[in-house]
Structures are given as C-alpha cells and as structure tokens.
Amino acid sequence: MDFNENFILGCSAIGAGLAVIAGIGPGVGQGIAAGHAASAVGRNPGAQSEIRTMMLLGQAVAETTGLYGLLIAFLLLFVKPLLP
C-alpha cells in the first residue's frame, strides 16, 4: 500500500494527541499527593516545611510518566520519524 505524506502527518498528529492522554495519570497522582499532604499538615502543623518538601519531591517524580507521553508527542510532531 502507498500512503502519501499528508496522510502520515495527519495520523502523526492524531497519535500525538493520543500520547498526551498519559497526562491523566500524573494529574490524579499529584492530586492525591497534595491531598494527603494537606491532611498531614492538618494533623501536624509543625512539620509543614518537611511535608511541603516531600510533597514537591514526590510530585516531581510522579510527573515523569506524563512527560514520557509528552516526549512521544513532541517526537511525532517535530521530528516526524514516520515519514519515509
């Protein structure tokens, strides 16, 4: 079969859109982390600074999976690996 360039580029754009759905996971995860941090501060307001540091660290690590999806989207849009 023979696909022309426009078809491949259009499918790449759809694939990039599907790839950034990966952002759902980190969104939910970061929300859970922030919620638990809030309840932890409510229970022990003295440890606020340590809890904030730990929350930011955990969120930044959890963000990675979403960023992998974003990277795939960038590759599909700008590097265009599927073009012959």
Binding site: A60, E63, T64, L67, Y68, L70, L71, F74
Partner: peptide
C-alpha cells in the same frame, strides 16, 4: 534513562 529524561523533558516542555 529516567533521570536524564525527567530533566530533559521538563526543561524542553518549558522551552516549547
């Protein structure tokens, strides 16, 4: 791989 991709992807997404 995950260490380098995390830093790279964060800064690249900000730049873009």
């Amino acid at each position: 791989v995950s260490l380098s991709l995390r830093l790279f992807a964060n800064v690249l997404s900000g730049t873009i």
